[in-house]
Design a protein around this nucleic acid. Structure first.
Lengths: 187, 187
DNA sequence: TTTCTCATGTAACGCGTTACATGATTAC
DNA sequence: GTAATCATGTAACGCGTTACATGAGAAA
Protein backbone atom coordinates (compact mmCIF):
# COMPACT_ATOMS: atom_id res chain seq x y z
CA UNK A 1 0.00 0.00 0.00
CA UNK A 2 1.26 3.41 -0.72
CA UNK A 3 2.53 5.38 2.18
CA UNK A 4 3.84 7.59 -0.59
CA UNK A 5 0.34 8.70 -1.57
CA UNK A 6 -0.76 9.07 2.02
CA UNK A 7 2.13 11.46 2.59
CA UNK A 8 1.26 13.25 -0.63
CA UNK A 9 -2.26 13.57 0.73
CA UNK A 10 -1.11 15.29 3.89
CA UNK A 11 1.12 17.59 1.84
CA UNK A 12 -1.96 18.53 -0.19
CA UNK A 13 -3.38 19.79 3.08
CA UNK A 14 -0.31 21.68 4.33
CA UNK A 15 3.37 22.07 3.45
CA UNK A 16 5.41 20.06 5.93
CA UNK A 17 8.83 18.68 6.83
CA UNK A 18 9.65 14.99 7.06
CA UNK A 19 9.63 15.36 10.80
CA UNK A 20 6.06 16.67 10.76
CA UNK A 21 4.91 13.84 8.50
CA UNK A 22 6.56 11.34 10.77
CA UNK A 23 4.73 12.69 13.78
CA UNK A 24 1.35 12.59 12.08
CA UNK A 25 1.84 8.98 11.05
CA UNK A 26 3.15 7.97 14.46
CA UNK A 27 0.26 9.58 16.33
CA UNK A 28 -2.50 8.37 14.07
CA UNK A 29 -4.58 5.40 15.15
CA UNK A 30 -5.74 4.72 11.63
CA UNK A 31 -2.49 4.89 9.66
CA UNK A 32 -0.97 1.42 9.85
CA UNK A 33 2.69 2.34 9.61
CA UNK A 34 5.24 2.67 12.34
CA UNK A 35 6.51 5.92 10.83
CA UNK A 36 10.16 5.07 10.76
CA UNK A 37 12.59 7.58 9.34
CA UNK A 38 13.78 5.28 6.65
CA UNK A 39 10.40 5.09 4.98
CA UNK A 40 9.31 8.69 5.45
CA UNK A 41 12.50 10.38 4.30
CA UNK A 42 12.89 8.02 1.36
CA UNK A 43 9.30 8.58 0.30
CA UNK A 44 9.85 12.33 0.35
CA UNK A 45 12.95 11.97 -1.82
CA UNK A 46 10.87 9.92 -4.27
CA UNK A 47 8.03 12.44 -4.29
CA UNK A 48 10.57 15.15 -5.01
CA UNK A 49 12.14 13.11 -7.83
CA UNK A 50 8.66 12.66 -9.32
CA UNK A 51 8.25 16.46 -9.09
CA UNK A 52 5.04 15.94 -7.15
CA UNK A 53 6.43 18.13 -4.38
CA UNK A 54 8.84 21.03 -4.26
CA UNK A 55 11.37 21.54 -1.52
CA UNK A 56 12.42 24.66 0.33
CA UNK A 57 15.26 24.65 2.80
CA UNK A 58 14.89 26.87 5.84
CA UNK A 59 18.24 27.72 7.37
CA UNK A 60 18.45 27.12 11.09
CA UNK A 61 21.24 27.17 13.61
CA UNK A 62 21.36 24.85 16.55
CA UNK A 63 19.27 22.31 14.66
CA UNK A 64 19.45 20.71 11.20
CA UNK A 65 17.90 22.82 8.45
CA UNK A 66 14.18 22.27 7.91
CA UNK A 67 13.32 20.77 4.52
CA UNK A 68 9.81 22.00 3.84
CA UNK A 69 7.90 20.10 1.15
CA UNK A 70 5.01 21.66 -0.77
CA UNK A 71 2.74 19.83 -3.21
CA UNK A 72 2.98 20.87 -6.88
CA UNK A 73 0.24 20.95 -9.53
CA UNK A 74 1.57 17.64 -10.85
CA UNK A 75 1.32 16.28 -7.33
CA UNK A 76 -2.29 17.40 -6.99
CA UNK A 77 -3.11 15.65 -10.25
CA UNK A 78 -1.29 12.46 -9.24
CA UNK A 79 -3.14 12.38 -5.92
CA UNK A 80 -6.48 12.85 -7.62
CA UNK A 81 -5.76 9.97 -9.97
CA UNK A 82 -4.69 7.69 -7.16
CA UNK A 83 -7.84 8.48 -5.17
CA UNK A 84 -9.86 7.15 -8.09
CA UNK A 85 -7.99 3.86 -8.50
CA UNK A 86 -10.09 0.72 -8.28
CA UNK A 87 -11.00 0.02 -4.63
CA UNK A 88 -9.91 -3.27 -3.14
CA UNK A 89 -11.38 -5.25 -0.28
CA UNK A 90 -9.52 -4.75 3.01
CA UNK A 91 -6.94 -7.26 4.15
CA UNK A 92 -6.77 -8.05 7.84
CA UNK A 93 -4.13 -9.86 9.81
CA UNK A 94 -5.81 -11.44 12.78
CA UNK A 95 -2.94 -13.41 14.27
CA UNK A 96 -5.05 -14.45 17.22
CA UNK A 97 -7.60 -16.23 15.03
CA UNK A 98 -4.81 -18.42 13.70
CA UNK A 99 -3.91 -19.30 17.25
CA UNK A 100 -7.54 -20.15 17.98
CA UNK A 101 -7.68 -22.52 15.03
CA UNK A 102 -5.44 -24.89 16.93
CA UNK A 103 -6.68 -24.16 20.43
CA UNK A 104 -8.75 -27.31 20.85
CA UNK A 105 -5.89 -28.90 22.75
CA UNK A 106 -6.50 -26.41 25.59
CA UNK A 107 -9.23 -26.75 28.18
CA UNK A 108 -12.17 -24.38 27.95
CA UNK A 109 -11.01 -22.22 30.85
CA UNK A 110 -7.71 -21.54 29.14
CA UNK A 111 -9.48 -20.66 25.92
CA UNK A 112 -11.79 -18.37 27.86
CA UNK A 113 -8.90 -16.54 29.45
CA UNK A 114 -7.25 -16.15 26.04
CA UNK A 115 -10.50 -14.67 24.76
CA UNK A 116 -10.55 -12.32 27.71
CA UNK A 117 -7.03 -11.11 26.90
CA UNK A 118 -8.09 -10.61 23.31
CA UNK A 119 -11.13 -8.66 24.51
CA UNK A 120 -8.86 -6.37 26.49
CA UNK A 121 -6.46 -5.84 23.59
CA UNK A 122 -9.27 -4.99 21.21
CA UNK A 123 -11.03 -2.90 23.85
CA UNK A 124 -7.95 -0.79 24.35
CA UNK A 125 -7.64 -0.24 20.64
CA UNK A 126 -11.26 0.97 20.42
CA UNK A 127 -10.68 3.28 23.34
CA UNK A 128 -7.81 5.05 21.64
CA UNK A 129 -9.70 5.18 18.36
CA UNK A 130 -12.61 6.87 20.12
CA UNK A 131 -10.34 9.40 21.80
CA UNK A 132 -8.77 10.28 18.49
CA UNK A 133 -12.10 10.45 16.65
CA UNK A 134 -13.21 13.01 19.28
CA UNK A 135 -10.07 15.12 19.44
CA UNK A 136 -9.49 15.12 15.68
CA UNK A 137 -5.80 15.98 15.55
CA UNK A 138 -4.34 16.56 12.07
CA UNK A 139 -7.77 16.35 10.52
CA UNK A 140 -8.42 18.64 7.56
CA UNK A 141 -11.89 20.16 7.52
CA UNK A 142 -11.79 22.25 4.40
CA UNK A 143 -15.45 21.52 3.68
CA UNK A 144 -18.42 19.96 5.40
CA UNK A 145 -18.08 16.96 3.18
CA UNK A 146 -14.39 16.49 3.96
CA UNK A 147 -15.21 16.62 7.64
CA UNK A 148 -17.90 14.00 7.09
CA UNK A 149 -15.51 11.75 5.16
CA UNK A 150 -12.94 11.86 7.93
CA UNK A 151 -15.47 11.15 10.62
CA UNK A 152 -16.89 8.20 8.72
CA UNK A 153 -13.44 6.77 8.17
CA UNK A 154 -12.81 6.88 11.90
CA UNK A 155 -16.21 5.30 12.52
CA UNK A 156 -15.31 2.55 10.10
CA UNK A 157 -12.44 1.51 12.35
CA UNK A 158 -14.52 1.80 15.49
CA UNK A 159 -17.30 -0.32 13.98
CA UNK A 160 -14.81 -2.95 12.93
CA UNK A 161 -13.34 -3.33 16.38
CA UNK A 162 -16.78 -3.27 18.00
CA UNK A 163 -17.88 -6.10 15.75
CA UNK A 164 -14.85 -7.95 17.02
CA UNK A 165 -15.81 -7.26 20.65
CA UNK A 166 -19.35 -8.58 20.05
CA UNK A 167 -17.93 -11.69 18.46
CA UNK A 168 -15.66 -12.32 21.45
CA UNK A 169 -18.48 -11.89 23.98
CA UNK A 170 -20.76 -14.18 22.04
CA UNK A 171 -18.07 -16.79 21.75
CA UNK A 172 -17.27 -16.75 25.44
CA UNK A 173 -20.93 -17.38 26.29
CA UNK A 174 -21.39 -20.11 23.74
CA UNK A 175 -18.24 -21.90 24.82
CA UNK A 176 -19.55 -21.98 28.38
CA UNK A 177 -22.84 -23.44 27.16
CA UNK A 178 -21.05 -26.02 25.06
CA UNK A 179 -18.95 -27.03 28.05
CA UNK A 180 -22.01 -27.34 30.28
CA UNK A 181 -23.88 -29.39 27.70
CA UNK A 182 -21.00 -31.79 27.37
CA UNK A 183 -20.54 -32.23 31.06
CA UNK A 184 -24.26 -33.02 31.24
CA UNK A 185 -24.08 -35.66 28.51
CA UNK A 186 -21.08 -37.31 30.14
CA UNK A 187 -22.65 -37.70 33.58
CA UNK B 1 2.88 -13.22 11.87
CA UNK B 2 3.95 -16.79 11.77
CA UNK B 3 3.08 -18.77 8.75
CA UNK B 4 5.49 -21.23 10.34
CA UNK B 5 3.07 -21.97 13.18
CA UNK B 6 0.07 -22.08 10.90
CA UNK B 7 1.83 -24.76 8.85
CA UNK B 8 2.77 -26.58 12.05
CA UNK B 9 -0.91 -26.44 12.98
CA UNK B 10 -1.99 -28.16 9.80
CA UNK B 11 0.74 -30.76 10.25
CA UNK B 12 -0.70 -31.43 13.72
CA UNK B 13 -3.87 -32.41 11.91
CA UNK B 14 -2.31 -34.58 9.20
CA UNK B 15 1.14 -35.40 7.79
CA UNK B 16 1.60 -33.55 4.54
CA UNK B 17 4.00 -32.51 1.79
CA UNK B 18 4.95 -28.93 1.00
CA UNK B 19 2.74 -29.16 -2.03
CA UNK B 20 -0.26 -30.08 0.11
CA UNK B 21 0.41 -27.22 2.52
CA UNK B 22 0.72 -24.83 -0.37
CA UNK B 23 -2.63 -25.88 -1.75
CA UNK B 24 -4.38 -25.45 1.58
CA UNK B 25 -3.00 -21.95 2.02
CA UNK B 26 -3.78 -20.98 -1.55
CA UNK B 27 -7.37 -22.20 -1.38
CA UNK B 28 -8.16 -20.76 2.03
CA UNK B 29 -10.15 -17.55 2.23
CA UNK B 30 -8.99 -16.86 5.76
CA UNK B 31 -5.24 -17.46 5.50
CA UNK B 32 -3.73 -14.18 4.32
CA UNK B 33 -0.71 -15.49 2.44
CA UNK B 34 -0.26 -16.04 -1.25
CA UNK B 35 1.27 -19.45 -0.61
CA UNK B 36 4.36 -19.03 -2.67
CA UNK B 37 6.87 -21.84 -2.82
CA UNK B 38 9.65 -19.79 -1.37
CA UNK B 39 7.88 -19.28 1.92
CA UNK B 40 6.32 -22.70 2.29
CA UNK B 41 9.37 -24.79 1.47
CA UNK B 42 11.65 -22.59 3.56
CA UNK B 43 9.28 -22.79 6.52
CA UNK B 44 9.27 -26.57 6.28
CA UNK B 45 13.07 -26.65 6.27
CA UNK B 46 13.03 -24.47 9.39
CA UNK B 47 10.46 -26.65 11.12
CA UNK B 48 12.62 -29.65 10.33
CA UNK B 49 15.74 -27.90 11.66
CA UNK B 50 13.82 -27.14 14.87
CA UNK B 51 12.95 -30.84 15.05
CA UNK B 52 9.29 -29.92 15.30
CA UNK B 53 8.57 -32.13 12.31
CA UNK B 54 10.12 -35.28 10.92
CA UNK B 55 10.52 -35.95 7.23
CA UNK B 56 9.98 -39.09 5.23
CA UNK B 57 10.86 -39.33 1.57
CA UNK B 58 8.56 -41.36 -0.64
CA UNK B 59 10.30 -42.51 -3.79
CA UNK B 60 8.39 -41.79 -6.97
CA UNK B 61 9.19 -42.01 -10.62
CA UNK B 62 7.88 -39.60 -13.16
CA UNK B 63 7.58 -36.95 -10.47
CA UNK B 64 9.89 -35.51 -7.79
CA UNK B 65 9.97 -37.56 -4.60
CA UNK B 66 7.32 -36.63 -2.04
CA UNK B 67 8.74 -35.17 1.18
CA UNK B 68 6.14 -36.02 3.77
CA UNK B 69 6.34 -34.03 7.01
CA UNK B 70 4.94 -35.34 10.30
CA UNK B 71 4.70 -33.35 13.52
CA UNK B 72 6.89 -34.55 16.42
CA UNK B 73 6.18 -34.41 20.17
CA UNK B 74 8.40 -31.33 20.37
CA UNK B 75 6.33 -29.82 17.60
CA UNK B 76 3.08 -30.52 19.43
CA UNK B 77 4.48 -28.81 22.50
CA UNK B 78 5.75 -25.81 20.52
CA UNK B 79 2.35 -25.43 18.88
CA UNK B 80 0.56 -25.57 22.20
CA UNK B 81 2.81 -22.87 23.61
CA UNK B 82 2.33 -20.62 20.62
CA UNK B 83 -1.45 -20.98 20.83
CA UNK B 84 -1.26 -19.52 24.32
CA UNK B 85 0.87 -16.50 23.47
CA UNK B 86 -0.61 -13.12 24.39
CA UNK B 87 -3.37 -12.20 21.90
CA UNK B 88 -2.96 -9.01 19.93
CA UNK B 89 -5.57 -6.78 18.36
CA UNK B 90 -5.99 -7.36 14.63
CA UNK B 91 -4.27 -5.11 12.12
CA UNK B 92 -6.16 -4.21 8.97
CA UNK B 93 -4.95 -2.65 5.80
CA UNK B 94 -7.83 -0.78 4.25
CA UNK B 95 -6.13 0.89 1.32
CA UNK B 96 -9.42 2.26 0.09
CA UNK B 97 -10.02 4.25 3.26
CA UNK B 98 -6.75 6.05 2.67
CA UNK B 99 -7.95 6.98 -0.79
CA UNK B 100 -11.23 8.24 0.67
CA UNK B 101 -9.37 10.51 3.09
CA UNK B 102 -8.38 12.68 0.14
CA UNK B 103 -11.49 12.21 -1.96
CA UNK B 104 -13.06 15.59 -1.22
CA UNK B 105 -11.64 16.92 -4.49
CA UNK B 106 -14.05 14.63 -6.37
CA UNK B 107 -17.71 15.36 -6.93
CA UNK B 108 -20.23 13.35 -4.95
CA UNK B 109 -21.20 11.18 -7.92
CA UNK B 110 -17.60 10.05 -8.39
CA UNK B 111 -17.31 9.27 -4.70
CA UNK B 112 -20.53 7.31 -4.88
CA UNK B 113 -19.32 5.25 -7.79
CA UNK B 114 -16.07 4.53 -5.93
CA UNK B 115 -18.13 3.39 -2.96
CA UNK B 116 -20.14 1.18 -5.28
CA UNK B 117 -16.97 -0.46 -6.58
CA UNK B 118 -15.82 -0.98 -3.02
CA UNK B 119 -19.19 -2.51 -2.18
CA UNK B 120 -18.76 -4.97 -5.03
CA UNK B 121 -15.22 -5.88 -4.02
CA UNK B 122 -16.21 -6.50 -0.41
CA UNK B 123 -19.42 -8.27 -1.47
CA UNK B 124 -17.45 -10.69 -3.59
CA UNK B 125 -15.13 -11.42 -0.71
CA UNK B 126 -18.08 -12.20 1.60
CA UNK B 127 -19.56 -14.46 -1.04
CA UNK B 128 -16.44 -16.61 -1.22
CA UNK B 129 -16.11 -16.65 2.55
CA UNK B 130 -19.67 -17.93 2.83
CA UNK B 131 -19.09 -20.63 0.25
CA UNK B 132 -16.01 -21.82 2.10
CA UNK B 133 -17.67 -21.68 5.51
CA UNK B 134 -20.37 -23.98 4.08
CA UNK B 135 -18.17 -26.45 2.23
CA UNK B 136 -15.53 -26.63 4.96
CA UNK B 137 -12.56 -27.90 2.99
CA UNK B 138 -9.45 -28.76 5.02
CA UNK B 139 -11.31 -28.22 8.24
CA UNK B 140 -10.40 -30.54 11.11
CA UNK B 141 -13.37 -31.67 13.18
CA UNK B 142 -11.73 -33.85 15.77
CA UNK B 143 -14.19 -32.73 18.42
CA UNK B 144 -17.42 -30.79 18.66
CA UNK B 145 -15.52 -27.95 20.17
CA UNK B 146 -12.94 -27.86 17.41
CA UNK B 147 -15.73 -27.76 14.88
CA UNK B 148 -17.30 -24.88 16.78
CA UNK B 149 -13.99 -22.99 16.90
CA UNK B 150 -13.49 -23.27 13.16
CA UNK B 151 -17.03 -22.20 12.40
CA UNK B 152 -16.75 -19.17 14.66
CA UNK B 153 -13.47 -18.16 13.06
CA UNK B 154 -15.11 -18.20 9.67
CA UNK B 155 -18.04 -16.24 11.05
CA UNK B 156 -15.62 -13.68 12.42
CA UNK B 157 -14.46 -12.90 8.90
CA UNK B 158 -17.98 -12.85 7.53
CA UNK B 159 -19.12 -10.46 10.28
CA UNK B 160 -16.20 -8.18 9.62
CA UNK B 161 -16.93 -7.85 5.93
CA UNK B 162 -20.66 -7.46 6.58
CA UNK B 163 -19.95 -4.60 8.96
CA UNK B 164 -18.00 -3.07 6.10
CA UNK B 165 -20.94 -3.51 3.73
CA UNK B 166 -23.31 -1.83 6.20
CA UNK B 167 -20.90 1.05 6.55
CA UNK B 168 -20.69 1.51 2.79
CA UNK B 169 -24.47 1.51 2.35
CA UNK B 170 -24.94 3.98 5.16
CA UNK B 171 -22.29 6.25 3.77
CA UNK B 172 -23.78 6.25 0.28
CA UNK B 173 -27.15 7.32 1.67
CA UNK B 174 -25.75 9.99 3.92
CA UNK B 175 -23.60 11.46 1.16
CA UNK B 176 -26.71 11.81 -1.00
CA UNK B 177 -28.52 13.60 1.82
CA UNK B 178 -25.57 15.88 2.44
CA UNK B 179 -25.45 16.74 -1.25
CA UNK B 180 -29.18 17.49 -1.33
CA UNK B 181 -28.98 19.64 1.78
CA UNK B 182 -26.15 21.68 0.32
CA UNK B 183 -27.85 22.20 -3.00
CA UNK B 184 -30.90 23.41 -1.04
CA UNK B 185 -28.88 25.90 0.99
CA UNK B 186 -27.19 27.27 -2.12
CA UNK B 187 -30.36 27.95 -4.09
C1' DT C 1 21.49 15.73 35.04
C1' DT C 2 18.66 13.35 32.46
C1' DT C 3 15.06 13.33 29.30
C1' DC C 4 12.25 15.30 25.59
C1' DT C 5 11.70 17.84 21.26
C1' DC C 6 13.46 19.24 16.98
C1' DA C 7 15.60 17.51 12.66
C1' DT C 8 18.04 14.83 9.33
C1' DG C 9 19.63 10.66 7.63
C1' DT C 10 21.82 5.34 7.00
C1' DA C 11 22.45 0.09 7.81
C1' DA C 12 20.99 -4.41 8.47
C1' DC C 13 17.48 -7.48 8.35
C1' DG C 14 12.88 -10.08 7.94
C1' DC C 15 8.85 -11.25 5.62
C1' DG C 16 6.36 -11.52 1.58
C1' DT C 17 5.81 -11.24 -3.43
C1' DT C 18 6.50 -12.43 -8.43
C1' DA C 19 8.94 -14.84 -11.62
C1' DC C 20 12.14 -18.38 -13.00
C1' DA C 21 13.49 -23.43 -13.52
C1' DT C 22 12.48 -28.45 -14.32
C1' DG C 23 9.83 -32.34 -15.84
C1' DA C 24 6.51 -36.29 -16.05
C1' DT C 25 1.55 -37.54 -16.24
C1' DT C 26 -3.25 -36.78 -17.02
C1' DA C 27 -7.36 -34.46 -18.82
C1' DC C 28 -9.75 -31.84 -22.43
C1' DG D 1 -1.83 -29.92 -28.85
C1' DT D 2 -2.61 -27.33 -24.85
C1' DA D 3 -3.40 -26.89 -20.20
C1' DA D 4 -3.70 -28.48 -15.59
C1' DT D 5 -1.86 -31.35 -11.76
C1' DC D 6 1.87 -33.16 -9.16
C1' DA D 7 6.25 -31.89 -6.92
C1' DT D 8 10.46 -29.62 -5.70
C1' DG D 9 13.18 -25.71 -5.37
C1' DT D 10 15.94 -20.71 -6.34
C1' DA D 11 16.57 -15.55 -7.53
C1' DA D 12 15.48 -10.89 -7.41
C1' DC D 13 13.07 -7.44 -5.43
C1' DG D 14 9.88 -4.35 -2.51
C1' DC D 15 8.11 -2.83 1.66
C1' DG D 16 8.46 -2.40 6.38
C1' DT D 17 10.88 -2.82 10.78
C1' DT D 18 14.43 -1.89 14.44
C1' DA D 19 18.53 0.08 15.53
C1' DC D 20 22.33 3.19 14.71
C1' DA D 21 24.30 8.02 14.16
C1' DT D 22 24.51 13.10 15.19
C1' DG D 23 23.67 17.22 17.82
C1' DA D 24 21.54 21.49 19.78
C1' DG D 25 18.15 23.62 22.97
C1' DA D 26 14.51 23.32 26.45
C1' DA D 27 12.23 21.35 30.19
C1' DA D 28 11.86 18.47 34.43
Amino acid sequence: MSIKYVILGYLSWQPMTGYDVKKIIAESEILPWSANNNQVYRALVQLHDDAWVSKEIEQQDGAPNRHVYTITDDGVRALEEWVQTEPEAPISKKAFLHQLLWADSLDTEKIDSLLESYLNAVGEKVFFLRVQADRKPNMPERSMREKYLWEMIHKNWIFQYETELDWIRRMREELKELEAAQRWSKS
